[in-house]
Amino acid sequence: MAMTEREDDRVLEPFFAAARARPPEPGPDVLARVLAEAEAVQAARPAAGRDTGAAAAGSSGWRALIGVLGGWGGAGGLLAAGVAGLWIGFSGIGALGAASTELWGGAGAILDADLGADGVFSLILDLEAEA
């Protein structure tokens, strides 16, 4: 530390000590306002309040996956595709031919084969577990 800084410290330390000894304190009204906002924030998200610990850890994978799918809209699209595939499989329109299988690829084939709505969610859960 430079000589001038030591001298500055010597001059200033009594002032700093006085300031530390007399910190401004929040009055009761300020504390009450802060606490009221805290309680309002807690009340506004009761679900989030319960969403902690293991539950939060489990749901974070969900949120990540939904995000990858482009939000709930994207996830809904995937579900719709699964249901549509199931319907196609049952109705026999799947016999449209090899061209459609080529077009949609393996994932479409999987959905057609043995996945309905529950199957899609099972797939999502599997993906989450692997994440």
Partner: peptide, 18 residues
């Protein structure tokens, strides 16, 4: 606090507002 504990809101208010 995030889990909804009222006591945590009070403790944080008193500890950190100052």
């Amino acid at each position: 606090f995030a889990a909804g504990e009222a006591a945590a809101a009070r403790a944080l208010t008193l500890r950190l507002t100052p």
